[in-house]
Simulated scan of single mutants.
Amino acid sequence: MSVVPPVRSLLLFAVAAGVGALVGACGGNGGESADATVVEPRLLQTETGERIFAGTLVNQGSAPIGIAEVEVALYDDQGSRIETMRIQVQDVSPGDSATFNQTVDSNRPIQQAQVQNILSP
């Protein structure tokens, strides 16, 4: 698997990391989890052209996370939001983390991805 070209990859990481930090600071209303954050969010591309969004969900709280959904916004090269995807992450103990990845199931020209929310029941 090869990574998106270095300059674009760095830009994607910087944007996604900033959003990930903001998500970690969100309050607990509306299903958002204030006790979880995503670190190292990244949009990857395989040698065959398959796109994958990956990251690590960190449980900063004192209770286990049974299931969480990481909501990711997908953007085109103009910065327009064109789709949203959700990635389920399960069974993260307090103080622990879980890596995740999911194929971007779209034929649209996605150039950027940002974590928008972390939802939990």
Score class of each variant (00 low, 15 high):
Glu69Arg: 11
Gly18His: 09
Ile110Asp: 03
Ala17Met: 07
Ala54Glu: 12
Ala16Lys: 01
Ala98Tyr: 06
Leu119Cys: 06
Glu50Gln: 13
Asp76Pro: 10
Ile65Val: 10
Val58Gly: 01
Ala34Val: 11
Val23Phe: 08
Thr84Lys: 10
Met85Gly: 06
Gly20Leu: 04
Met1Phe: 13
Val115Gly: 03
Ile118Pro: 01
Met85His: 05
Val70Trp: 00
Ala68Tyr: 01
Pro94Phe: 00
Ala73Cys: 12
Asp35Glu: 11
Asp77Ile: 11
Ala17Gly: 03
Thr103Glu: 09
Gly24Ser: 05
Ala113Leu: 04
Gln112Cys: 04
Met1Ser: 11
Ala17Val: 13
Asp96Ser: 13
Phe53Arg: 00
Ala36Asp: 02
Val15Asp: 10
Pro121Gly: 04
Val7Trp: 14
Ala113Ser: 10
Thr48Val: 15
Arg8Thr: 15
Asp91Leu: 12
Pro41Tyr: 03
Ser120Cys: 04
Leu119Tyr: 10
Ala34Met: 14
Tyr75His: 08
Thr37Gln: 10
Asn59Met: 02
Ile65Thr: 02
Ile87Glu: 01
Asn59Arg: 00
Arg42Thr: 14
Thr99Arg: 15
Val92Leu: 06
Cys26Tyr: 15
Ser2His: 14
Thr46Asp: 15
Asn59Val: 05
Thr37Phe: 07
Arg42Gly: 07
Asn29Tyr: 15
Met85Asn: 07
Gln102Trp: 00
Pro109Gln: 04
Gly24Phe: 01
Val70His: 00
Met85Gln: 06
Gly24Glu: 01
Gly79Lys: 10
Pro64Glu: 02
Pro5Ile: 13
Ile52Met: 04
Ser120Ala: 11
Glu71Cys: 07
Pro5Arg: 10
Gln112Glu: 04
Gln102Thr: 06
Asn107Glu: 13
Gly95Cys: 08
